[in-house]
């Protein structure tokens, strides 16, 4: 309990380093919420002496639509990059606890953990949400991540998301989730094999996930002309109990 509190404070301070605009008032607000929240959580879990653990299951969520819209056909010489007129520019939110998509109207709540829009992935905290969902990325095999790391979780900031939306490039930091496996100017978004995202939700529960495909139906050899992109298929395990273990 104490460890958690210290960790939470550290997070808040870390965050202020990234964002000088945070006022002390805002910081305090966060601290108070954190303290109150963690106490209730602590009371809740301490009061139940003999909890019947809820089973942990590995689930594949297929074809989460992250603002897909078809390209506008071009007639005549091009005047710029191809456009997609039907796109909404909105995120699709997901909750690990329910295993379901959360309505976009709930964006200002902590009902969602993670949001997807094109290749951009956000978490519900920091610069991108009112919640307290933080995350980190490991280079490992999904099934071999048996325990969530104790710390290292971060929130998106105004400058940088926890998971970068750009393609990986030589020498880039390791928080990239995809690289361009297409040739030349044709971009094929390939989720990098062996990247596991570990999420600590607003409810202080852990989930791990691996993105498997960015194309509808998770085709073995995606074609960026024929296949519909912006469709996430991912595997995840949500630990509903108060433990970092994924077993």
């Amino acid at each position: 309990m104490q460890g958690f509190l210290i960790h939470f404070q550290k997070k808040a301070i870390n965050k202020s380093i990234y964002n000088y605009n945070l006022t002390m008032k805002f910081l305090n607000y966060f601290l108070i919420i954190g303290v109150v929240f963690s106490f209730t959580l602590g009371l809740f879990s301490c009061s139940d002496d003999d909890p019947a653990p809820i089973p942990v299951v590995s689930t594949i969520f297929s074809d989460l639509d992250a603002d897909y819209a078809p390209f506008e056909p071009i007639t005549g010489p091009p005047t710029g990059p191809p456009k997609r007129i039907g796109e909404t520019n909105e995120f699709t939110f997901f909750s690990f606890a329910t295993g379901e998509i959360v309505a976009n109207t709930d964006s200002a709540t902590s009902n969602w953990d993670i949001g997807f829009r094109r290749s951009e992935i956000i978490f519900n905290s920091g610069a991108n949400g009112p919640g307290n969902t933080t995350a980190l990325m490991l280079e490992d095999i999904f099934d071999e991540v048996l325990e969530a790391p104790a710390d290292g979780y971060a929130s998106d900031t105004d400058n940088e998301n926890v998971i970068s939306s750009s393609p990986q490039n030589t020498g880039a930091p390791a928080n990239y989730w995809w690289f361009n496996s297409g040739s030349g100017s044709s971009t094929v978004v390939a989720p990098i094999a062996g990247r596991v995202i570990v999420v600590k939700t607003s409810q202080n529960r852990y989930a791990k996930m691996e993105i498997l495909s960015y194309y509808k139906g998770a085709p073995a050899a995606p074609d960026n002309m024929a296949d519909e992109d912006r469709h996430y298929t991912f595997r995840y395990v949500y630990q509903p109990n108060d433990t970092r273990k994924f077993e």
Binding site: Q168, F179, S181, S183, G184, S185, I192, A193, A221
Partner: peptide, 23 residues
């Protein structure tokens, strides 16, 4: 194997060999 070739042949892109997302 074929890497990421920035070009196309008769309008067809040259698909790279990578099939298992490690580049």
């Amino acid at each position: 194997g074929i890497g990421d070739i920035s070009g196309n042949i008769q309008g067809e892109t040259i698909p790279p060999s990578d099939r298992n997302s490690n580049g």
